[in-house]
């Protein structure tokens, strides 16, 4: 379709609209960066979910499990490498975070492979059962996390180099948020390049639109789907690891909590659309932070309101996917 810029414009519109309400430019910058960081972390977790839905009409209500697993695995690795985390060298810090994040992605990805086999595959095409079984998967996964890591929350602290904030006059920008923004943008760029510039990406986009025809061209969409599912799970693990560091605590319920935001984001974006997911995530992140500042009591309600407004404007989400 022709490039549709309107939804994209919502982001600057929201930013500019918030400025007079917030008043102080310094707070505005801080909140905006926080909103972008939060939005991009959600985007990382949501991108795979929206693609698997687009490809095979599968919505994994247990997606939160991968987020939680990523957070726990990363936390374990970082706790094991505690001396490097607290060292006063950014390189040692990164040497701890790198393996932690990698481990989170690998474990979540492998788990995704198993989840697809055991939980999702037997109920393809049966939406009701799919919702039930994947929710069941989430319940069991959450309990297993408690079996392995114990029922109590784990406290994490960020490595030395990522504590504190950059100061520009009276503007303070937390270092960790900058990192989150950078990682989020890198993931987005990688996904966008893959989807638009590679044959694999073409296949995925075509498959989202009409999987049956992709098969008639001789491609095995099942394999494609499993691949996307695994990558999506690994990204959820990455997002979970980042979220854990952001919150500095990890609990078994983290997955289910964040998954709600993830769902809102992919509904806003249009189920199946990665671009929409990106815009939706930023909108949700920014709104949550602005409203959290302006009217803290209704912060989470604001996301629902945002979703309702978007759906009133475009009932299929910002970027509806052309289906069949």
């Amino acid at each position: 379709m022709k490039r549709d810029w309107l939804p994209l414009l919502l982001i600057p519109a929201l930013m500019i609209g918030a400025l007079p309400l917030i008043g102080s430019p310094a707070s505005w910058v801080t909140l905006t960066v926080a909103g972008l960081a939060m939005g991009l972390m959600i985007f990382i977790m949501a991108s795979g979910l929206t693609l698997t839905f687009g490809l095979m009409d599968v919505l994994n209500f247990g997606h939160g499990a991968f987020i939680a697993v990523g957070a726990f695995v990363a936390a374990s690795v970082m706790l094991a490498l505690a001396p490097w985390m607290t060292a006063d060298s950014i390189w040692l810090n990164l040497a701890a975070i790198g393996p932690a994040v990698l481990a989170a992605m690998v474990v979540s990805g492998v788990l995704g492979l198993g989840f697809e086999r055991v939980i999702v595959r037997p109920v393809y095409g049966q939406h009701l059962k799919q919702i039930l079984v994947t929710t069941g998967g989430l319940i069991v996964a959450e309990q297993l996390l408690k079996v392995i890591w114990g029922p109590d929350q784990i406290t994490l602290s960020r490595p030395t180099a990522l504590r504190g904030a950059f100061l520009f006059g009276d503007i303070a920008i937390e270092k960790y948020r900058v990192l989150a923004v950078v990682v989020g943008l890198v993931v987005f760029a990688a996904l966008a390049l893959t989807l638009n510039r590679t044959r694999l990406g073409l296949l995925i986009r075509a498959g989202v639109e009409n999987g049956e025809m992709v098969e008639a061209l001789g491609y095995r969409i099942r394999r494609l789907f499993v691949g996307v599912f695994v990558v999506g799970s690994a990204l959820a693990g990455l997002g979970g690891a980042m979220w854990g560091l952001y919150q500095e605590t990890v609990t078994a319920a983290i997955g289910a909590q964040v998954a709600v935001l993830v769902f809102i984001v992919i509904i806003i974006g249009g189920l199946g659309s990665v671009g929409g997911c990106f815009v939706g995530a930023l909108l949700v992140g920014l709104t949550a932070n602005y409203i959290g500042f302006l009217a803290p009591k209704v912060a989470l309600g604001s996301n629902i309101l945002l979703m309702a407004l978007v759906l009133l404007w475009r009932p299929q989400g910002l970027y509806p996917v052309a289906k069949r």
Binding site: F53, L59, H127, I131, I267, L271, M307
Partner: peptide
């Protein structure tokens, strides 16, 4: 659809 309703 069912899935949409469940998510909302």
């Amino acid at each position: 659809r069912t899935i949409f309703f469940a998510m909302i």
